[in-house]
């Protein structure tokens, strides 16, 4: 299954919890702090990297706070070497 991640604009979030309900992977939780507007913002809590980048959270977010990225597996899993000799 694809993997991904989301970035939540914490200051824009109104803590409505719609994304939390919509996420099939249950990797969104409400933060235990308040943002500048006094809301508890949503946060990605995904230690096992279960977010699939399906974007359903972003689709339901009324405030357009969520940016979604999906991982693109590196071609043929060849590590790309980059750098110069020290």
């Amino acid at each position: 299954m694809a993997t991904g991640r989301i970035v939540i604009d914490v200051e824009r979030c109104k803590g409505c919890e719609l994304c939390l309900e919509a996420c099939p992977q249950h990797v969104i939780e409400m933060g235990n702090f308040f943002n500048g507007k006094g809301y508890r913002p949503a946060m990605l809590v995904d230690p096992r990297h279960e977010c699939t980048g399906c974007a359903l959270c972003a689709v339901v977010c009324p405030d357009g706070c969520i940016t979604v990225y999906r991982d693109v597996p590196a071609p043929k899993a060849q590590p790309v070497l980059k750098g110069v000799p020290a």
Binding site: G4, R5, G53, A55, A58, V59, I66, T67, V68, Y69, R70, D71, V72, P73, A74, P79, V80, L81, K82, G83
Partner: peptide, 12 residues
Amino acid sequence: TQLVEPTEKLVY
């Protein structure tokens, strides 16, 4: 040597 992160694409 530096391993470049697996690239990701913007979905939304």
